Structure formats: structure tokens, C-alpha cells
Amino acid sequence: MTTRLVPYEQLDATQREQLDGLEVHPEQQAFSGDIYTALHTLLKAPEPGIKGFALLADERPVAFLLLKHGPFLPHWASAGTATLHALQVDHRVQGRGYGQACLQALPEAARLAWPELKGLMLSVDADNQAALKLYLKQGWVDSGEAYKGRIGYERRMTLDF
């Protein structure tokens, strides 16, 4: 199966409709949110500092994520980075490596969006062991710092370019 990470604005009407049907497991929604919230963040008032990306598998959306940069960086992020948010893989295709494919394609997609970037950052719930394991496997570095997030303690992770 061929995968590629594409900016939201490059999706055709059929792919956008398919993306609307992306569903995450209910227990994962506390960590990643749902597709409606993510798309609302992206589309409510389009901004150059917020970009959405869909992972296509044989041209069908199977995952989605947001990147934030510039004035949209959260308080915990370093200047010169973009932050990863709302990474969601459709529950009907989980376990097929799509989360890994998103993370592998992400640095190039981020640099195309913002060539001046020095790296990426994310914040992950300390109890989300599956996500922590995935990020570490893909080369993200845990800062060792934890802070109180909206649903528990969060770990900051970085991926330098």
C-alpha cells in the first residue's frame, strides 16, 4: 500500500468527505480529540501558522494531524519549532503502521510548510504509553520534563532537524 502525507488543501472533495468519517477509539479521544475538533481548529479562520495534513493510503485518508507554528505555538514550545497536535489514525486501520508513516513523513512536510524550522515538538500524556513508545521509536527525544496538562501529566518531546 502506498502512503503519502499531504496538506489538507490538496485533498479533493471526495478525500475531504472521506476524512470527515475518520474515527478514533473513544479511549484515544481524550488524547487526540476527534476529527471534527481538529478540522474546526484548521478551518474556522485559516491561518498560515496552522497546517493540517492527511495521510493517504492508496489515495484514501487514513490519518490526520495538525502542525502549529509562530504565534500559535503553545507556551511549552521553543521558538523556531512547530508543534504536533491531534494525530489521529482511523481505528478501522490501526496496527498497519500508519502512525509511523505519518511521523516518518512529518519532518519533510513541516520543512516544506515552514523552511525556517529547526525542529518539531509535541506534548504527550504521560499515561499514553503506546504514543510514547511510537514517538521514541521514531527518534523523538523525551525532555524528561513533565507538566500538568488538561487531563494529566504531559511529557514534552522534540525532534531536531
Rank of each mutant, 00 (worst) to 15 (best):
A38I: 10
P46W: 14
I151Y: 00
T2W: 04
L42D: 09
L43N: 15
P74T: 09
Q138Y: 00
V141R: 13
A63L: 12
A105G: 11
H25T: 09
Y135G: 07
P115N: 05
S123R: 07
E9P: 01
D142R: 11
A38V: 07
E17C: 09
T83D: 06
A126F: 03
A126I: 03
L73K: 09
T14I: 10
L84R: 09
Y153I: 00
T81P: 00
L55D: 05
I50A: 10
Q29A: 14
S32Y: 13
Y8S: 11
S143D: 07
L67G: 03
T81M: 03
A57C: 14
A101E: 05
A77T: 04
D12S: 03
E47D: 15
L117E: 03
A131V: 01
Y153M: 08
E116D: 13
V141D: 02
L84V: 15
Q100A: 14
I50F: 04
K137F: 00
T37L: 14
A105C: 05
L122W: 00
S123Y: 00
D160N: 08
P115W: 10
L120W: 02
P71G: 01
Q28K: 12
A101P: 03
N128V: 03
G80E: 06
G99R: 11
T158I: 08
Q15D: 07
V93L: 11
E23A: 15
K137A: 11
A79E: 14
Y135A: 09
K44M: 12
R92M: 05
A54L: 11
L122G: 03
L134Q: 05
K118S: 05
G139Y: 02
D12W: 11
M121F: 02
F161A: 07
H85T: 02
L11V: 10
G139M: 03
H75F: 12
T14V: 14
G95E: 05
F64E: 01
G149R: 03
Y98F: 15
E154H: 05
A101W: 11
T37E: 13
G80V: 10
L112C: 05
I151C: 00
K118Y: 00
A30F: 02
E154P: 00
V62K: 11
T37N: 14
A79M: 06
G97M: 02
G52D: 08
L136M: 09
K68R: 15
P115S: 06
S143P: 00
L67M: 13
Q100W: 01
D12C: 07
A130Q: 13
L103D: 04
F72I: 00
Q138G: 00
G119L: 01
A105I: 07
E145C: 04
Q104A: 12
F64K: 06
